[in-house]
């Protein structure tokens, strides 16, 4: 560190004749008063954060209140969203958000966990940092750039190749096949889920890696010493140990997917509001519905309904975030205790 304690101006600012026990010291250059003021300022900055959070919850609750009291439970159970007839039910938006986010989770978790295992367990030392860093960079790409890429590059491929292929292979299978029915449009729930999966991949990788690194080496060595193969050691000793933390990583990814706006808005279609069982139907997520309709909401009830969607999104993402943090906290706390023991 360039700045050592002995060279710093703050030190020379002391009165040169100060002696220990000198009463003047406590008042000398900005002593007690300065300390009190500075501590107060940092406290104010710190309290600004919970204040912002509280204000967000309060303001959204107040603005969503007219729609919530008018429609009650049907606000989340009805699938009619008609601003001319002033009927507002958000079920299709909730459905779109849940389906795309779960799809993202299903696609991103195995890939992300695999990449994290590669980085922590398999990769030669000189490959570890580059691979981890490259995947981390994915998190730095702005949402709108994913949207642009999805809009012009991903949806045509989905429409012409991936979706017809899935319809031909999985379509005829009972139960699962119902997910892949109807015309291939490219801009639908499925593409929305795929783009979300790409976007949450860095989150899943980063947290899984952290959790895997917290698994004690003894776990692996014990298993290997018993004659297990590498995969048996990972599946039998490492993964069970890290299970809660990996679940936390996946759910933190889910939380990020729930609130994503621009990228999804550009590939999800934003047209049909009918709920069908197929992933190949265009839809809306809560976030894309807000983005599309916020500036159109011209009467009070319509506006209140749009804010109501935001309020639901806020509460759901806060709950999912909390749950993920508790899971991750439980595993890293155990690791810390293990290290002490």
């Amino acid at each position: 560190m360039a700045t050592g304690p002995t060279t710093h101006p703050a030190m020379t600012a002391l009165p040169p004749n100060a002696r220990s026990g000198d009463a003047a010291l406590t008042r000398a250059p900005g002593g007690v008063d300065g300390d009190r003021a500075f501590a107060g300022a940092t406290l104010a900055a710190a309290l600004a954060v919970p204040a912002i959070l509280l204000a967000v919850f309060l303001l959204l609750a107040i603005d969503a209140e007219p729609a919530l009291t008018r429609f009650g439970a049907s606000f989340v159970t009805s699938s009619t969203w008609d601003n001319v007839k002033e009927q507002f039910g958000t079920l299709p938006y909730i459905y779109g958000t849940v389906v795309t986010s779960l799809l993202a989770l299903v696609l991103a978790t195995p890939v992300g966990l695999g990449a994290a295992l590669f980085i922590t367990e398999y990769a030669p030392r000189r490959l570890r940092t580059p691979v981890a860093f490259t995947i981390e960079l994915l998190a730095a790409i702005p949402s709108i750039v994913f949207g642009l890429w999805g809009f012009f590059a991903l949806t045509p491929v989905m429409r012409s190749t991936v979706e017809p292929f899935l319809k031909a292979t999985i379509g005829p299978v009972p139960v699962v096949g119902a997910l892949f029915q109807g015309p291939s449009l490219g801009k639908d729930l499925f593409t929305g889920g795929v783009i979300l999966a790409i976007m949450i991949l860095p989150t899943v990788v980063a947290i899984s890696r952290e959790v895997l690194l917290a698994v004690p080496t003894m776990q692996r060595e014990g298993m290997l010493a018993l004659g297990a193969t590498k995969w048996e050691a990972i599946s039998g000793a490492v993964l069970p140990y890290a299970r809660a933390g990996i679940a936390g990583a996946a759910i933190l990814g889910l939380a990020r997917a729930l609130g994503e706006t621009m990228a999804v808005t550009m590939v999800i279609g934003n047209s049909s509001r009918k709920i069908t069982g197929s992933l190949l139907t265009p839809g809306y997520t809560m976030a894309s519905a807000i983005a599309n309709q916020f500036n159109e909401a011209d009467n009070e009830l319509y506006f209140s309904a749009v804010v109501g969607v935001a309020a639901i999104l806020l509460v759901v993402s806060a709950l999912v975030n909390l749950f993920a943090r508790v899971l991750i906290w439980s595993i890293t706390r155990n690791a810390a205790q293990g290290a002490r023991a």
Binding site: V49, V56, S143, F294, L314
Partner: peptide, 25 residues
């Protein structure tokens, strides 16, 4: 604990919700 918790939750706010909040505020 409280401030850190609030900071984590603010970090997890969907950005569109931040937009709705600032519009209303």
């Amino acid at each position: 604990e409280g401030v850190r918790f609030a900071s984590d939750l603010v970090a997890g706010l969907p950005s569109i919700v931040v937009g709705v909040f600032v519009w209303a505020a």
